[in-house]
Design a protein around this nucleic acid. Structure first.
Length: 504
RNA sequence: GGCCCGUUCGUCUAGGGGUUAGGACACGUCCCUUUCACGGAUGAAACACGGGUUCGAUUCCCGUACGGGCUACCA
């Protein structure tokens, strides 16, 4: 019988969750959603040295903003497997129990080596030109552990409270194979796997032990994680095996990485030319915050859409998908094996697509706070009309200001290029006639402005529209001019034109 | 260095033994627009290389190159 689908996103709270992490969470979410399963947030805080204040809260908020909230786990309600923080689970003795079981079975051992001794070993191996210096079946014979020390000494060390770690006893030469849902069969010889530390000297489990114990106890059906875990997967297989749980272990899926746009390496927060965090992140150890997608004006739906299409696609030509649609379509069989470079330009395009799906009313309300910040307040009808006219030009809501501020502020300069090219000796007289026509319009609408203007053109000959636009708005481009003038109003439009004429 | 994973236009990708190798972003041109944008049309642009297997390989196999990941009492 197939297990109920239960997947987890298991970040460590060592900083802000970046977009690569969000994508891992997203794929977990989509898979759970598709199969009517559970999506769990587990916090892997077993490294006390790397704990960062605020990181956990950030992760929770980021998942919420993205609309991919787990239905179980830290911040999302306890299920029957609480607690979901590994530091708290450690207090319950959960991990020690499994480590002891491994020791009893002869598949793990105590190691008493100090970090200095380990350093020495590595140096020695490097000097001897050993290609892969590691604590393994060969080198452990020269180290201080329960495999080399007399039994009495080990007992004494343990009884006197000597510091120790528990290491996995990896066989010297054994083929380990596992079937990854995304990559197919992967085969590694155990000679490449080191005797991983399972329990640290502070009593905390390492990732290797902790995630396995928790995945088993939490009945996880699929372990979906980044490709960076692929090299340690063989060790994980061994742990499951020695625990007698190989048949109960979750199916493995290693996701391809998201790479920097300019080629080198997985995406990093230092890449300052585009946001890497979903929400702005202030690292307590750093002075300047990292700007997030939310604060940059991205819709969460757009952000999630972009991420979903990095390393996966449904096989059609469509690109715009809601989270619900993504969940219906998603399958690991269509996830790529190779990493994808993130394209910030295309990300903007995605946002534009979502912006266009908004009604003029929604856009108006979204823009209102920005406008207020700039010191202007307008009624709803005005803002709706404004957004309707300007929206074709923007990718982000805040750009309504950049592309339409002249509606609210009369120009004090006039586009130089247009003026030098088009303003001449006859211009002033001509536009004075235009001004007279405008002054005499009683019913000020786009249509009447257009009609009366056309009548003047019939008498006076061609009048340059772009020049007129610059005189009224100051800038060379924008939405349909008469529409804009109708919005700006007769009084203001006339005033702007006469001001311009008096200045020039 | 060692091990592992990967490689279709600049980027995201579809496809897959016989195709004019398709779409999207970005870019060029044209149309629409008395502007810019939107929209429409159109163009340039890819199967990393070398060997096999095959009547035929971009597709399958093997090498090489290149890229990435890992190589901690970090995750």
């Amino acid at each position: 019988m197939e297990k109920r689908v239960r997947v987890r996103f298991a970040p460590s709270p060592t900083g802000g969750l970046h977009m690569g992490g969000v994508r891992t969470a997203l794929f977990n979410y989509l898979f759970a959603k598709k199969h009517g399963g559970d999506f769990i947030l587990r916090i892997e805080d077993t490294d006390q040295n790397r704990f960062v204040e605020g990181a956990e809260a950030y992760i929770i908020e980021a998942l919420k903003w993205c609309g991919i909230a787990p239905n179980e786990g830290v911040g999302f309600g306890d299920g029957k497997h609480a607690p979901y923080r590994q530091s708290e689970r450690k207090e319950l003795g959960i991990y020690k129990k499994y480590a002891d079981q491994l020791i009893e079975g002869g598949h793990a051992y105590y190691a008493f080596d100090t970090s200095e001794e380990l350093d020495e070993m590595r140096k020695r191996l490097e000097a001897a030109k050993v290609s892969a210096p590691q604590y393994n079946a060969v080198t452990r014979q020269n180290m201080r552990n329960s495999l080399t020390l007399p039994e009495d000494d080990v007992k004494k060390l343990l009884d006197t409270g000597a510091k120790y770690v528990i290491r996995l006893k990896v066989p010297r030469n054994e083929e380990i194979r596992f079937n990854d849902i995304i990559r197919g069969w992967v085969v590694v010889n155990s000679a490449q796997v080191d005797d991983k530390v399972l329990l640290k000297s502070d009593g905390m489990p390492t990732y290797h032990l902790a995630h396995i114990v928790d995945d088993i106890e939490m009945e996880i059906s699929h372990a979906v994680r980044g490709e960076e875990w692929l090299p340690s997967a063989p060790a994980h297989i061994l742990i499951y095996r020695y625990l007698g749980l190989e048949n109960d272990m979750p199916k493995l899926a290693h996701l391809p990485l998201i790479l920097n746009p300019d080629g080198n390496g997985k995406i990093s927060k230092r890449e300052a030319r585009f946001p890497v965090f979903p929400l702005s992140w202030q690292d307590p150890r750093e002075a300047t915050p990292y700007v997030g997608y939310r604060e940059s004006g991205y819709y969460p739906e757009a952000f999630v859409n972009i991420l979903a299409l990095l390393g996966w696609n449904p096989g059609t030509n469509e690109e715009i998908f809601s989270v619900e649609q993504l969940a219906n379509l998603f399958e690991f069989e269509r996830v790529h094996k190779s990493g994808a470079k993130f394209d910030p330009e295309k990300a903007k395009w995605f946002n534009q697509q979502y912006l266009r799906m908004q009604s003029d009313h929604e856009l108006a309300e979204a823009f209102r706070p920005t406008l207020k910040e700039k010191g202007f307040e307008k009624d709803e009808a005005f803002l709706i009309e404004f957004c309707k006219l300007v929206k074709e030009k923007v990718q982000f809501v805040h750009e309504f200001w950049d592309h339409g501020k002249y509606v609210f502020i009369a120009p004090d300069t006039y586009d130089e290029k247009v003026m030098t090219k088009k303003w001449n000796d006859q211009s002033k007289a001509l536009f004075t006639r235009v001004l007279n026509v405008f002054e005499n319009i009683t019913n000020w609408t786009s249509q009447t402005i257009h009609d009366d203007f056309e009548n003047l053109v019939k008498e006076a000959g061609k009048i340059d529209m772009q020049l007129l636009r610059v005189l009224i708005t100051g800038v060379a481009g924008g939405p349909q001019l008469f529409d804009m003038m109708a919005l700006i109003g007769k009084e203001e439009s006339v005033k702007r034109l006469s001001t311009a004429l008096s200045k020039l």
